[in-house]
Structure formats: C-alpha cells, structure tokens
Amino acid sequence: MSSTFDTVAKIIAETCDIPIETITPESHAIDDLGIDSLDFLDIAFAIDKAFGIKLPLEQWTQEVNDGKATTEQYFVMKNLCARIDELVAAKSA
C-alpha cells in the first residue's frame, strides 16, 4: 500500500503539478486535489503503465452514476491505492 501510494502520489504530483506533500492517503482526488476528468485520464494512463493494469474507470463511473458506489470508494487516495493493489494481485493470480 505505502509503495503504491508513493507511486500514485508521484504520478498525480507530476501530472497535475500538485505539491506532493499535499497529497495524503485521505485526499479525495476530485474534491480535495481538484483533479478533473481530463487530468484523470492522464493519471489513469500513467497508473495503467506503471502497474501493468487497466483501471476500470468506466465501470467505476457507471457505479457512481447509478448510485451503487460513492466517489470516495474509488477516488480517495487510500481507496484508489487499495483498488490498484487488488488489480495487481488479480493479474498475478
């Protein structure tokens, strides 16, 4: 998790020009860090490449739009990193 967090925080900091020290596990990527959907495509691209996965952004967006999930479940940093870890583990299984 900590290694995943460090990697994702670095990606976000570099992609969106956000000071890395302001990114914490509790940060909400949209509400706290102000990342918009276009910037998040760049972040997803970098995460996909860094971890060798495919973040299911469409599925997440659909679940949020349908009221089946909250943005916090996917876009708070600690939760995002947990999802990434799950995807990496699933790939290795």
Partner: peptide
C-alpha cells in the same frame, strides 16, 4: 500506445 477504460492514447 494504450487502450484504457474509456480512453485511448
């Protein structure tokens, strides 16, 4: 270069 979920590069 990349086929993401809902985006491509």
């Amino acid at each position: 270069e990349h086929e993401g979920s809902g985006f491509a590069v």
